[in-house]
Design a binder for these strands. Structure first.
Lengths: 135, 135
DNA sequence: GCTTGACCTTCCCATCATTGTAATCTTTAA
DNA sequence: TTAAAGATTACAATGATGGGAAGGTCAAGC
């Protein structure tokens, strides 16, 4: 059955807020939705499927620009899977980079925390570390 | 010796761009710098020390708001170190949260990448996974 | 003394993903 | 018929940072 959805229903079905659905349309990630006579947006099953694709990609940390690329690859039946795979691998690298940056921050800060007695006295190796550390 | 710095020198000495030094002043993280007769900002050794503190805190992932709190604790000789320590611990938790989120993304994406042969054929488990996965 | 280049000033705009708000119109259910 | 829920648009804000324009200033060299 070809169900149709208004924006609120599409939002619930996809997990993307109505705000963001309109935004994705305005920046060209989505084609302009068709409209009812009175101007409400209408979404088909296929549209909702695309929205769910977008949400999944977003949850994997892809940017809107990258999601656009993924979408056009998804909708292009002939594209080689190697293209998708290399894009995914590049993205994994950037995730790794971010993870490493955050872990480095955590390690440094943990070192300072471990040195701090954390009581009512004012001496504080954490602040001293931030003030004088030259890593 | 009481050296003074203009904004470019303070930037080099602290590792914070001139853009950001002005920005930090405009949002109140820094008090308004004193000025030469012609309007150039002047920084003292102490000011540069504060800038370096800010950069260290930023490199540990603290937000400007949090850096403001750290700064006032740093400059308040009587504050208990427990205050600093608990703030640092909360921050470590939020770093952990971010690390976990990113690692989850990476794991999921890596699973898909591992399934993809990545050659000239169009079948692509990565796109299929993004399209149909319901984690 | 004047030119040049490097550096400073302010102000506005852009990024990125997302949320909030306000004013207004439409649909739906009581 | 009316009230509530939900849709429309447009604009602003977040947070950390960068870019650029238009203009003033300083130091070095001729």
């Amino acid at each position: 059955m070809n169900t149709t959805f208004n924006i609120g229903q599409a939002s619930k079905a996809s997990g993307i807020s109505t705000k963001m659905i309109r935004h994705y349309e305005s920046v060209g990630l989505l084609p302009p939705a068709s409209r009812t006579y009175s101007g409400y947006r209408i979404y088909s099953d296929k549209d909702v499927h695309i929205l769910r694709f977008i949400r999944q990609a977003r949850d994997l940390g892809f940017s809107v620009k990258q999601i656009g690329d993924l979408l056009s690859m998804w909708l292009d039946p002939g594209r080689p899977s190697s293209k998708v795979k290399s894009m995914a691998q590049v993205h994994i690298q950037s995730l790794d980079q971010k993870i490493n940056d955050l872990m480095e921050m955590k390690t440094e800060l943990q070192k300072l925390v471990d040195c701090c007695h954390g009581d009512s006295r004012p001496e504080c190796p954490i602040l001293d570390g931030i003030a004088y550390d030259n890593t």
